[in-house]
Amino acid sequence: MQPNVNVISLVSVGRHPQSGRARRAEQDGRAVELGLKLAGKNLTVVHAGNPQEPVLRQYAGMGLSSLTVLEQAQGCDALPALVSFLTENSVNIVLTGVRSENGESSGMLPYLLADQLNWPLVPRVADIVSVSAESAEVLLALPRGQRRSVIVTLPFIASVDNAAQEARQTAFGPGLRADFHVLAMDTVVDEAAHQWKITAAKPRPKRLKVVKAKTAADRMKAATAKPVGSGGKIMKNETPEEKAKAIFDLLLEEKVVR
């Protein structure tokens, strides 16, 4: 779109929700897709971790000629490596996923990057509409399918929501042929995480509907009665204009009609 903006997509190793196998992460794939839309061939895709990871070939298979890997051992903190990489290279837009599919899944990485680089951050982006020399217009994905338009100054970090354009299919052969630029980095071991105890997820107990009734008859009633609202307002004898006005006022008050 704009050849002079430098766009970087950060990618990680995903986890298939059913089999648990490594895969291209859902949101990171969308971040690469959005980056390709913005920068085309000039997109830089960066991974901090093991350069031998086969999943990286799936990202490369989306049509990337090369991929940058900041080499790190298992269990290291990716943040310092990424911060030094981003400060050394002049970058305008950094795209990440909202939450990683592996590890702590805290979703803190974009926020920590933004704080250390002192860049603005836009969370849960559905699309980047336009980019100019100083600013970009982005669409945020709000819950319930709503969208909000925000203008943000360059450079910035955006985390890409599941509402963004789906990642394209990857091609196996081109993925294998892509070059990997492997950069050696100082590694910082994540000490705090070594204190944690990690177990398979326990199913959470479902919350039971507890009826606090004094008598058996009240409990019976609570179990069998039809849902009845708290007794709303009933309009019977007003004119249709007044009735419709009352409904419309309620819609305005609840801000569903704008």
Binding site: R15, P17, G20, R99, E101, N102, G103, E104, S105, S106, G107, M108, A192, Q195, W196, K197, I198, T199, A200, A201, K202, R204
Partner: peptide, 29 residues
């Protein structure tokens, strides 16, 4: 500060969080 995310069992000393797309529980201070 390092926050606890997706926490679902919390008391004054220990917190249990979901991690790795809700497939593991992380117990931490």
């Amino acid at each position: 500060e390092r926050p606890a995310t997706q926490a679902w069992q919390v008391n004054g000393t220990q917190t249990i969080c979901r991690g790795a797309s809700s497939s593991v529980d992380i117990s931490r201070a």
